[in-house]
Nucleic acid binder design. Sequence first.
DNA 1: GCCAACGTTGGC
DNA 2: GCCAACGTTGGC
Length: 159
Amino acid sequence: MNYWLLKTEPTVFGVADLEAAPNRTTPWEGVRNYQARNFLRDGMGLGDQAFFYHSGAARPAIVGIVEVVCAGYPDETAFDPDSRYHDPASTPAHPRWYRVDVRLVRRLRREVTLAELRRHAEALGDFPLLRRGNRLSVLPVTAAQWSAILAREADSDHH
DNA sequence: GCCAACGTTGGC
DNA sequence: GCCAACGTTGGC
């Protein structure tokens, strides 16, 4: 059982979209970065949980929790010439890209913003999201970091 | 809109 | 294998 953080742009697919999806479930597709691909394909297991993070937003923040309901399998959008995620180098015989299915467990009771995480960086240790220049869209989270962030959610005095 | 950081591409 | 050019990400 591992923990993760998944980034998404809310204007493309946000927590409201996931909430409205059938079974509040969606394939996490379109990831085209090898390191992130490896996490999706090799790292994530059924039942793993992940923070749902809004990037590129006015207030970048963790807004929800999702659960992996289907472990890594080939990302078929890569095979589709009409898809914005099309990659001719990926074929059904030799798929290059992978996805998982995630289901919304719940929204956080309040957003935990990136700014707030930075203010409490010392409680998070070496957290990849806070690293300068980090662009990876699938990040591992330690159990200690997971608990620390949930403690932020529960902290009403978050300044 | 700006710009720093990073990954990928492709010439050599 | 090196590295410059380029495209993308993402905070601000």
